[in-house]
Design a protein around this nucleic acid. Structure first.
Ligand SMILES: [Zn+2]
Ligand SMILES: [Zn+2]
Ligand SMILES: [Zn+2]
Ligand SMILES: [Zn+2]
Lengths: 141, 141
DNA sequence: GTAAACTCTATACTTGGTATAGAGTCAAGC
DNA sequence: GCTTGACTCTATACCAAGTATAGAGTTTAC
């Protein structure tokens, strides 16, 4: 199977497939005589797995870890579960941050009604004067 | 004021200040004879304003828009309010996406208890078989 | 035989910075 | 006067997870 067919079957772009290869998520496939990539059905399965992980917003690094564990069928799946648990935690943390952010924004926004002039705008005044009450989130998911 | 002092006063790094200058959030300051940047108190105020906006997770583009409006005191503040409103909307949308993501992840995670082997791991089986039920969020905040 | 469709590599771009290298500048101490 | 350390300058590369070209080579259809 050439890369274009694989892209069609997975719904990933050709560039993305090559990108995953560079990132070592996908093994470098065999090449035809004219240097075209030639994929097996295994590669298709692997890509669908990766796509699934990405749709859950797992990072390349997280996916690498899971793939590594998956490659050894008799190993414990501990790492996999730990990765997912941590990822859930990542996301819950980000939700918490975004909720705090939303509250701050709504509060700032509430200080201006419509049709004011810039010099009377409560929002702008707020943005000029708020002290360091919040810290910016460090881990952006 | 030289850039190091400005960095100390704002809590931003020197590189970040130069970065904002490149992005035209901060006007290019005067230079000393030895080509050092020399800042006014205006620049300090501007940077604190920008920092405030960033702490609300506004993008550089959004901040540009607000700064542009702010520069004309007799203008209507409509643009500012619209920017904030849209930004709140951005964040609410992202929260919604992350909540959906969290539910998916928790559901996947629930299919595996501890201490299984890789070949019996429910999580891995899920990741292999889930169809395209969800779509990946497009706008990552 | 030629044109369209495909593939290859390499490179640049995105966001909001961070982290160097290598060169120049300034102030203090000796 | 000279060195040392702290500071600044520009330019460049790097991070994530791709996307989007350019320019060259290949295959397929007619
Ligand atoms: Zn994660
Ligand atoms: Zn207003
Ligand atoms: Zn926004
Ligand atoms: Zn498991």
């Amino acid at each position: 199977m050439k890369i274009g067919q694989l892209a069609d079957k997975t719904g990933l772009s050709i560039q993305t497939i090559r990108f995953y290869e560079r990132k070592a998520l996908l093994a470098a496939p065999q090449r035809t005589q004219s240097n075209y990539r030639s994929y097996s059905d295994e590669a298709l399965k692997q890509l669908l797995f990766i796509k699934q992980c990405r749709s859950l917003d797992m990072t390349i690094e997280e996916i690498s870890l899971v793939l590594e564990t998956r490659a050894k069928p008799d190993n414990s799946c501990e790492t996999v579960n730990a990765t997912i648990d941590k990822h859930i935690d990542d996301i819950e943390q980000r939700i918490t941050e975004l909720n705090a952010l939303r509250r701050s924004l709504v509060s700032v926004r509430s200080t201006c009604a419509d049709n004011k002039k810039v010099k009377e705008c409560g929002v702008l005044h707020q943005l000029e004067s708020i002290a360091e009450t919040r810290t910016t989130p460090k881990n952006i998911i």
